[in-house]
Nucleic acid binder design. Structure first.
Lengths: 197, 197
DNA sequence: GCTTGCCCCTAACATCCGTTAGTATATTAT
DNA sequence: ATAATATACTAACGGATGTTAGGGGCAAGC
C-alpha cells in the first residue's frame, strides 16, 4: 500500500497542500482535478480525504497563508523608522523574494482566489483591500515630504504589485538572469519610477 | 422562440464571442460553462452550436484577435522615426487603452491562454515571445544611445506588460480616477523608471 | 500477540460538462 | 404561397468531477 511520504516534520496534509499549489499553478484551480492531485501525491483520489475536508479547503489554506505572510510583513515595515522610499523598497523586496522562493503558492493566491467561496472570498478580498490601502498610505506619506513625485497612490500600488507578478514569466524563461539581478533590476525600475527629482 | 438579437452589423457569432469574453473574464475559462454562456446570450446551450464549432474556438478567437492587434501596433511603431522612449510610450499607451476599452477580451487573452490546445497553444506562445523580443529590442536601442538607464531589457518588458494588466483592479475599484488620469499616472511611473538621468 | 487507530484501497454516487441527433419554427428567397 | 435556409428547441450521450461508504492492512502501545 502506497503511503504518503513525509520529510522533516511536515504532516501528510502539508505534502498535499504543497502538491496542490504546484498543480493549481500549472493548470488552474478548476482544471486541476482531485485525481490529478492524487496521482502527483502517489495515492488514490479518495485517500486524500483522510487528510483534507475538500478541494476548496486547499485553496483556502494556500490563499490565506500567503496573505498572512504579507500582512505580517506590512506590520513589521510600518513599525520601522525609515523613509517612505525605504519602506516601499523593503516591501517590494519582500514581494519579489516571496515570488521567487514561494512561487507556486503566491501565484495561486494571486490568480485563483476568485474560486474561493464566501465567507472566505469576502474575507480574502477585504484583507487584500486593506493591504493595498496601507501600501498606498506609505506612498502618500512619501509624496507629502517630497520623496515621491505627485502621482495617484492607488495606481502606483497596483502597478507595483502587478509588475512583481511578472516574475511568473521569469520562472518560465529558459535563459534566466540570476535572482539577485532580477531583484535589483525590478527595484531600480519600480522605485526609479516613483522618486521625485 | 428566442432568437439572438444582433445590432449594427454584428453577426450572431460575434455576439456569442463577446458574451463569452465577459463570462470567461468573470469566472475563468474552465469554470464558465456553455450553459452559463447560453443563458447570458438568451438561448439554450445546444443552440450555440449553430454558430460556433466548440467552446475552445471561442478562446482561439479571443486570444488571437487580441494578439493580432498588438502585433499590428508593433509593426506600426517600429516603422516610425522616433526615439526609443517615444516608441515605448506609444506602445504603453496602446496597451493601456486596449486594457481600458477592450478590458474583457484583453484580460481573457492574458490570463486564459493556457487553456488553448495545440497547435493554437504553441502558436500563441510564439507570437507572445516574439512580441516581447521586439519590445526588448527597442529598450536595448534606448540603452545604447543613453536614453534609458542600464537594466536587463527582458525584465523591463515583463514589468511593463504585467504592470498594465493591473488595470484590472482599476476596473473593479469603486472610486475610479478617470481613464485619462490613470493613463498619465501609469506612463509617468513606468517611463520614469526607465529614463537615464 | 492483540487491540486500537491511522491510512489507503475499491466501488460507487450524483451532478455537471461539452457536444450531437433529430425535430420544429422562424426568416428569407423565389 | 411555397420552397429553402437559418436558427431554435428538447432529449440524450458519454465522460469527468468532487465526494462518500465500507472494508482491509499496516504500525504503535499494551
Amino acid at each position: 500500500m502506497a503511503r504518503i511520504k513525509t520529510e522533516n516534520n511536515l504532516s501528510r496534509k502539508d505534502v498535499i497542500v504543497s502538491k496542490a499549489a504546484a498543480l493549481f499553478r500549472e493548470k488552474g484551480f478548476k482544471a486541476a482535478s482531485m485525481r490529478d492531485l492524487a496521482e502527483s501525491v502517489g495515492v488514490e483520489a479518495a485517500s486524500l480525504y483522510n487528510h483534507i475536508k475538500s478541494k476548496t479547503e486547499l485553496l483556502h489554506e494556500l490563499c490565506f497563508s500567503v496573505a498572512n505572510r504579507f500582512l505580517h510583513k506590512m506590520d513589521e515595515v510600518e513599525a520601522e523608522h525609515a523613509t517612505a522610499i525605504e519602506k516601499i523598497e523593503k516591501l517590494l523586496r519582500f514581494h519579489i523574494s516571496e515570488m521567487i522562493h514561494h512561487y507556486e503558492e503566491v501565484y495561486v493566491s494571486d490568480r485563483e482566489w476568485k474560486h474561493l467561496s464566501d465567507p472566505y472570498l469576502s474575507n480574502f478580498q477585504n484583507q487584500r483591500r486593506i493591504y493595498r490601502k496601507r501600501f498606498a498610505a506609505i506612498i502618500e506619506t512619501g509624496m507629502r515630504n517630497s520623496e515621491i513625485k505627485k502621482i495617484d497612490a492607488p495606481t502606483a500600488v497596483l502597478i507595483m504589485l502587478h509588475a512583481i507578478s511578472g516574475i511568473e514569466s521569469w520562472h518560465r524563461s529558459t535563459q534566466k538572469i540570476s535572482a539577485e539581478e532580477l531583484e535589483e533590476n525590478m527595484i531600480s525600475i519600480l522605485v526609479g519610477g516613483l522618486i521625485h527629482r
